[in-house]
């Protein structure tokens, strides 16, 4: 049994390509996940900054015909935390190249089902990062920066980087997360080491306007806190400024208070 340590997508691709070239079947190899270990070693260390390439753009494996779709799935699943992901990816890659080129269509297959679930979880996490990252303006000596700190469940920097770059190309920003960070200086998008919540900048004035706007939207006739929490889980509330208003909005409703737009009549 061969054992290889794998920590990220690029490393997996290199290892998998070599294994496939030598014809090593999945049963004879164990790809162990070193990501958690690496994180502990890297902790506190600077550096490790690199430019981001979206995973979709990687070249297909030479000599082996692998559907683009698989590379997309693999690039996304790499950001998951499940230690088994590298082995499952290699097993599916093996099957794709050894007589089952359509295995990804069989969505109820154990391995494919696993990959799809992981892919779904990472994608949803990336979507929530796009939705819930909240930037604050920081006045630096050479102009404004917009800085957000957000806690995703997985590693999503590579998935969300191009989105934020396209959207906020016109100003400088940093998206800080526990395991990795994205920085855009209006030239290059870089990915770097993560940071804790203490890096969050202090609130700016616009945030107060946003909270007031959010509070004004509530229609007490339609209160549905369960629906809200399902869409916007409480674990994100720490970095969502508007959620400060929720308790008092709901309490006001219970106490039978009149909504603000009616209270100001006349």
């Amino acid at each position: 049994m061969e054992v290889h340590a794998v920590g990220d997508f690029e490393r997996w691709r290199t290892v998998a390509r070599a294994l496939l070239g030598r014809g090593v079947p999945p049963a004879d190899v164990d790809l162990t996940d070193t990501w958690q270990l690496q994180r502990q070693l890297d902790f506190g260390a600077a550096g490790g900054v690199e430019a981001v390439e979206p995973p979709a753009r990687v070249a297909p494996l030479p000599q082996f015909r692998v559907p683009q779709k698989f590379l997309r799935v693999a690039g996304t699943v790499a950001g998951h935390r499940a230690p088994a992901r590298w082995n499952v990816l290699y097993r599916v890659l093996w099957r794709l190249t050894h007589g089952a080129p359509k295995v990804l269509d069989i969505v109820t297959d154990d391995d494919v089902h696993c990959l799809r679930q992981w892919q779904h979880q990472v994608r949803r996490d990336a979507h929530r990062t796009k939705a819930f990252a909240r930037f604050r303006r920081v006045n630096a000596a050479d102009g404004d920066w917009y800085v957000a700190w957000h806690r995703p469940d997985y590693r999503v920097a590579r998935l969300v980087g191009p989105f934020f770059r396209d959207r906020f190309a016109a100003h400088r920003w940093s998206l800080l997360m526990p395991d990795e960070a994205l920085v855009w200086d209006q030239q290059v998008l870089r990915i770097g080491p993560g940071t804790g919540p203490s890096a969050t900048p202090r609130e700016d004035d616009v945030e107060l306007l946003w909270v007031r706007y959010y509070a004004a939207l509530f229609n007490p006739d339609r209160a549905n806190p369960r629906g809200m929490r399902a869409q916007m889980p409480v674990r994100y509330w720490g970095t969502l400024p508007e959620t400060r208003a929720i308790t008092s909005l709901l309490r006001g409703r219970v106490a039978g208070r009149i909504p603000p737009d009616a209270a100001r009549d006349g």
């Binding site: 796009k130 939207l217 509530f218 007490p220 339609r222 209160a223 809200m228 869409q231 929720i246 409703r253």
Partner: peptide, 13 residues
């Protein structure tokens, strides 16, 4: 499209 927040009536912002 992206829903950036949800009000206590469960509707998307």
């Amino acid at each position: 499209g992206i829903c950036h927040s949800f009000t206590p009536d469960g509707r998307c912002v």
